[in-house]
């Protein structure tokens, strides 16, 4: 395994090898499964916060930096990344979080990782170092390739460094649980809370339990005042949320498939997928369905029926891609721009 520690070494590693699989801490193992002839390049040693300007709301970090370190550094100055990056305690890195677009419950308030990445240095398949975006929170110059890199899974280039916009961290958060009779009631209540005046910072649904978890954040008095309005039962604690963001509920054998969703189709989809074999969660106010299952035979046909796509984050024996993926000429043309020699096809 190659572990470059500078931009030059990353670039050399890419150009010196026919096929390169870029990885970080491999907390989402299925996303970086590489073929036998591939060279594994881990960016886990390319670390460090290179610039943090709390008064500018910006931080520049190298790809291998553990997200936990970024979060701790921001917290010292009362700031945070509002999108709740996932698998932080398990060691997720900055680069891996961007490449996997791993945003958690908090994204419903101000957006996901795509909405907070404002600049990036990417090493492409020719070993070129490309710097786009900027270091200021507002910028409309040039193509927004930093945003484009979100979700590229190492297949389009090695994300070496990223600049994030950061926000002041709310001093306090508290949560409530709403018990629902069925998925349709859950759909209606999620829609209601997402349109409410409460400015929720999480709306997650646990289908088996028929529970909606609602989190409010802000000044303590204000959040508690609003919670009276929200009603429901006293909800998950900070520790519960921390466990939730590690996806501990899915620590079972089998695949972990993520499916982009919209709220209105949630009840139908859940009804079709409900089985004792599947553990399900709906995140981001109906935006993401997570499926953890060792018996995945009907999942593919359900996703196809609804023209949905899924990505398996775990279980190296199961397929990576599920459901219906678009095949557009322009995507292939773009891939050829980033990786003309097909070096990043090392994943399988």
């Amino acid at each position: 395994m190659n572990e470059p520690t500078s931009l030059r070494e990353i670039s050399d590693c890419i150009t010196d090898h026919r096929r390169v699989a870029v990885a970080g801490a491999r907390t989402k193992p299925r996303l970086s499964r590489a073929s036998a002839d591939a060279t594994l390049m881990s960016l886990a040693k390319y670390t460090g916060i290179t610039d943090y300007q709390a008064s500018e709301f910006t931080i520049v970090v190298r790809a291998g930096t553990p997200m936990a370190e970024v979060i701790a550094t921001l917290a010292e100055r009362g700031q945070y990344l509002p999108f709740d990056p996932l698998w932080v305690k398990r060691g997720a890195t900055v680069g891996g979080t961007i490449a996997a677009n791993a945003s958690g419950p908090g994204r419903i308030r101000f957006g996901g990782i795509r909405d907070f990445i404002i600049g990036a240095t990417v090493i492409d398949g020719r070993g070129q170092s490309l710097r786009s975006g900027g270091k200021v929170v507002k910028n409309a110059a040039g193509f927004d390739t930093p945003k484009f890199m979100v979700g590229t899974l190492g297949r389009w280039g090695a994300i070496a460094e990223a600049t994030f916009k950061v926000f002041p961290r709310p001093p306090y958060s508290a949560s409530r649980i709403w018990q629902c009779a069925d998925h349709e009631e859950a759909r209606q209540r999620i829609a209601q809370v997402a349109r409410s005046r409460w400015e929720p910072t999480a709306i997650e649904y646990l289908p088996k339990e028929r529970q909606i978890w609602v989190r409010l954040s802000g000044p303590e008095k204000a959040a508690n005042g609003l919670l009276e309005d929200v009603g429901g039962e006293p909800g998950p604690s900070e520790a519960d949320w921390a466990a939730y963001n590690e996806l501990t509920w899915a620590d079972n054998p089998g695949s972990l498939i993520r499916v982009p969703l919209s709220l209105n189709i949630m009840p139908t989809l859940l009804a079709e997928l409900e089985s004792p074999d599947h553990r399900l969660r709906v995140g981001g106010a109906g935006s993401t369905l997570w499926i953890n299952s060792a018996d995945d035979c009907e999942i593919e046909s359900v996703l196809r029926r609804h023209h949905l796509k899924g990505l398996n984050h775990r279980d190296n024996a199961a397929p990576l891609r599920w459901g219906v993926w678009r095949d557009q000429k322009v995507d292939r043309a773009l891939q050829a721009v980033f990786d003309p020699d097909h070096r990043f096809t090392a994943f399988c």
């Binding site: 927004d144 982009p260 919209s262």
Partner: peptide, 26 residues
């Protein structure tokens, strides 16, 4: 080129490169 394409969609989540983000500001 005349090709009709779709980036993103109704979901707030997305898998794969963020073509929507690239198109904005082009």
């Amino acid at each position: 080129t005349g090709e009709v394409v779709t980036f993103g969609g109704r979901s707030r989540d997305e898998l794969g490169p963020d073509g929507t983000g690239l198109f904005c500001g082009s």
